[in-house]
């Protein structure tokens, strides 16, 4: 647990592995190759790397065209621009015809830090989740990111993998077998379930430890695939504990919190508390300061769990 790495670091490295195994892997970037780490692929496969310049919409629609020629296209840029600026290219030209394009932008969420609100994407999960046929994956650590990016190449169709800039503690290791669509119980519990995704998974584990000290048994489940959602695993845990906290580095509107609430409302209503960004924009600051400011620490998760238990 000592070494920390960012999920974005997995991108370039995994692309190289994919590129060696499959000559049809092509990478498109939009002037952020160093930040996204796609530069690593560029160095090894200069003939299969194309920098589109600052033109994300064109990049996405070109990726769709490349996919029709049998290429498996991975795209770069930041989450803000890949899912925001190029939303309709993704929706209409990639997803509507169900083309084989992988959207794996980096710098998602508020942990982007000092660049501020214009660059802190807190809507991308909602934007990608609402598109029919889109697979949406939010890795919780470097290893899960590696496995998810590799698996994305095997899925025939559009896949969104959300990557971040913040370094995170390791939860998994090289042997981890990532299965898209499968929730993972990281800690068993009986009083409350914490469903977490992305950077909030490691803080949920810390929260669960602290809750245990207070006599509360919390189950922690990593929901890395937000779509398709592992309905059964979520319902099963909700039946067991009867109380649910959802934690994500995203707006409380439209992300994992919404997905879980929608499911449970229909299938097994229980009290739900959402830990996320409360319908406001981000701002400049250090990542740790921002997590505190916006209520995204392990302490906030613990408080939410206690609140559900009336403590």
């Amino acid at each position: 647990m000592s070494e920390k790495r960012a999920t974005r670091e997995a991108y370039g490295e995994t692309l190289i592995e994919l590129g060696r195994a499959n000559p049809n892997i092509v990478v498109l970037e939009a002037d952020l190759a160093k930040s996204t780490t796609t530069i690593k692929f560029k160095k090894e496969f200069p003939d299969r790397f194309f920098d589109c310049g600052v033109a994300e919409q064109n990049m996405m629609a070109m990726a769709a065209g490349l996919a029709t020629t049998g290429k498996i296209c991975f795209t770069g840029s930041f989450a803000m621009f890949a899912t925001g600026r190029a939303f309709e290219q993704v929706r209409n030209t990639i997803a509507y015809p169900s083309l084989n394009v992988k959207i794996c932008p980096t710098h998602a969420g508020i942990t982007v830090g000092a660049d501020g609100g214009s660059h802190q994407t807190i809507e991308d999960i909602a934007l990608m989740r609402v598109i029919p046929g889109m697979t949406v994956i939010v890795p919780a650590d470097y290893y899960e990111a590696k496995k998810a990016i590799a698996k994305a190449a095997e899925i025939d169709g559009p896949v969104y993998v959300r990557l971040g800039r913040a370094t995170l503690p390791m939860i998994f290791d090289e042997d981890y077998d990532f299965v898209p669509g499968k929730a993972i119980v990281l800690k068993q519990g009986t009083d409350v379930t914490i469903f977490a995704t992305g950077i909030m998974v490691s803080s949920s584990l810390v929260a669960a430890e602290n809750l245990a000290k207070a006599g509360i048994s919390a189950e922690v489940i990593n929901i890395s695939t937000i779509k398709p959602l592992d309905d059964n695993a979520i319902i099963e845990s909700a039946v067991k504990t009867g109380r649910v906290v959802v934690a994500e580095e995203h707006s409380i509107i439209g992300g994992l919190g919404s997905a879980v609430a929608e499911l449970l409302c229909e299938k097994h209503p229980v009290p739900v508390a959402r830990v996320g960004i409360k319908d406001v924009f981000g701002r400049s600051g250090e990542p740790a300061e921002l997590l505190k400011y916006y209520g995204l620490t392990d302490e906030d998760i613990s408080q939410a769990a206690k609140g559900l238990l009336g403590k």
Binding site: A114, G116, S118, H119, S284, G285, E289
Partner: peptide, 12 residues
């Protein structure tokens, strides 16, 4: 670029 600053990383 500090958390309480009116001077954001990008103009606001």
């Amino acid at each position: 670029r500090k958390i309480d600053s009116h001077l954001q990383g990008h103009p606001d």
